[in-house]
């Protein structure tokens, strides 16, 4: 078990190295014009330069802030609404059709509405990011709350537990695996929408950096920004799975 895990790690590292080598090769052979495609060497140099003398760190923090605020707002609202809807069959019956109507709406469709109402502001960005990120969390929470073992509610009733105790001790922990899975999906959504909002509204962040670099044909800087975005998505996802492992230790205890 341990050994195969290490082998898998090794294999995926090799694939990544091969990918970078291929990229370097394509750049060196100038298969694509260097104006558009810098090699990994130039992209890396731009990355280092951006951090040491430019304000890439500031841009990264800007994006992380947008992402985090939107994602937190989406998590709190999504879990609260999801719990409310998921714990009552009546609510599910009444609200589900509206959700089915709203859910497939691409978030890009509400961006113009948000800009019209809130302007090109941080508030607009927060709204758009939270609106996009709320769906996976809310739908997962609804599912988690609806799927609580009915027998556990009977146990709670026979113990005469209060409504808040039932939510805190039975429903929430039971729905937690679903909720965390939804939050993980939303993390990616929040990152994408942060970049989109930064590009559209010119807000301080990696999106803005990427846009300016592209306009100025500084392809190495552009790639540095893109690499940083990829790393952000990857690392936040890893952090999330560490939290999941921690909170859901009971699931792995059995195996």
């Amino acid at each position: 078990m341990k050994r195969t895990a290490i082998l898998w790690r090794l294999a995926s590292a090799l694939v990544a190295a091969g990918f970078i080598a291929a990229w370097q090769l394509v750049a060196n052979l100038k298969l694509v014009s260097p104006v558009f495609l810098p090699g990994p060497d130039r992209a890396w140099a731009a990355l280092v330069r951006g951090f040491s003398s430019g304000d890439l760190a500031g841009k990264l923090i800007g994006t992380l802030e947008h992402m985090a605020y939107g994602w937190f707002a989406a998590s709190i609202a999504g879990i609260a609404l999801g719990a409310l809807i998921g714990s009552s069959r009546m609510m599910r019956a009444y609200v589900a059709p509206s959700l089915e109507f709203l859910r497939p709406l691409p978030v890009s469709a509400i961006i113009p509405v948000a800009i019209a109402m809130l302007g090109l502001t941080q508030g607009m960005a927060l709204f758009v990011i939270a609106f996009g990120a709320i769906w996976p969390i809310m739908l997962a929470t609804i599912h988690g709350f609806a799927a609580v073992e009915p027998r556990l509610y009977e146990v709670a009733r026979s113990l005469q537990m209060s409504r808040t105790a039932i939510i805190a001790k039975i429903a929430l922990p039971s729905a937690l695996p679903d909720i965390l899975a939804g939050m993980r999906l939303s993390l990616t959504v929040a990152l994408i929408l942060s970049v989109v909002c930064e590009i559209l509204a010119g807000l301080d962040g990696l999106g803005h950096w990427v846009l300016l670099s592209a306009r100025a044909f500084r392809s190495a800087d552009l790639f540095a920004g893109v690499i940083l975005l990829g790393a952000t998505g990857y690392l936040t996802s890893i952090a999330m799975s560490l939290v999941e492992q921690r909170l859901l230790a009971w699931q792995t205890a059995a195996r």
């Binding site: 073992e149 027998r151 009977e154 146990v155 026979s158 922990p173 937690l176 009971w250």
Partner: peptide
């Protein structure tokens, strides 16, 4: 009045 259910697997909290 305590109830002992037949399906103990469902009546226990797996996360506790």
């Amino acid at each position: 009045v305590a109830i002992v259910f037949q399906d103990y697997g469902k009546a226990l909290l797996p996360w506790r």
